[in-house]
């Protein structure tokens, strides 16, 4: 397979087939917490996409330039989480300084992102999948962000409509959201096997 096909397939596969939310259970907390309104969900998704691309690339670079050559595998987790926390801080400072209006609408999510498992998860999966090429790392990180945004927006759309539905008393709130997510993940299973 030539490089471009690999990249396109990798991108599609992480958006649909290996969607972090539906098949890897990553980023469930914000998924349950924020996905009440579609515009907020979209904002959160964009913020995550940005940070995930940045930190996916950075951690890949650190992993391959510093940790693997020096046999410092043991410091991987500490480094990764510090890079992510640092990236989130940087983005927050930058956005607050240069795009104050954007910060107003987006800023609250930024602080939450550090503990979004989708980001650390993606960085770890890049290592597990033995991605050995920087372009691929960037594309996969970006795709993971897009996949997350898509999942969270679909969910928000469904939840907006669920407010009108007659849900059994005990299932209101988180339970029905989880069950809906289950059905969605089943739908996404249909994509499995499409890409080899």
């Amino acid at each position: 397979m030539d490089t471009l096909t690999t990249l396109v397939l990798g991108f599609l596969s992480i958006v649909f087939v290996n969607n972090l939310v539906f098949s890897k259970f990553l980023g469930i907390c914000p998924y349950l917490g924020v996905s009440g309104r579609i515009d907020m969900a979209f904002g959160m998704g964009l913020a995550v996409t940005f940070v995930i691309t940045l930190s996916g690339t950075l951690t890949w670079l650190i992993d391959h330039a510093l940790l693997i050559p020096n046999n410092l595998d043991i410091l991987r987790y500490v480094c990764f989480i510090l890079v992510i926390a640092g990236a989130v801080q940087l983005v927050e400072m930058y956005v607050r300084k240069f795009f104050p209006t954007l910060y107003e609408s987006f800023g609250i999510f930024l602080a939450l992102i550090t503990t979004n498992c989708a980001i650390l998860g993606l960085c770890l999966f890049l290592n597990l999948w033995k991605v050995d090429n920087i372009v691929e790392a960037v594309v996969l990180s970006f795709g993971a962000g897009i996949g997350f945004t898509m999942a969270i927006c679909i969910m928000a759309g469904i939840r907006e409509n669920l407010q009108l539905a007659n849900v059994p008393e005990a299932l209101k709130g988180a339970p029905i959201t989880l069950i809906t997510a289950g059905l969605l993940s089943m739908a996404f299973m249909g994509f499995e096997g499409m890409i080899k």
Binding site: F22, F25, L171, A174, L178, G182
Partner: peptide
């Protein structure tokens, strides 16, 4: 994954 989501959802409903 389906089983995970649905089981947890139903358990949370039971707890409620």
């Amino acid at each position: 994954p389906v089983g995970a989501f649905v089981t947890l959802g139903l358990i949370l409903g039971l707890v409620n």
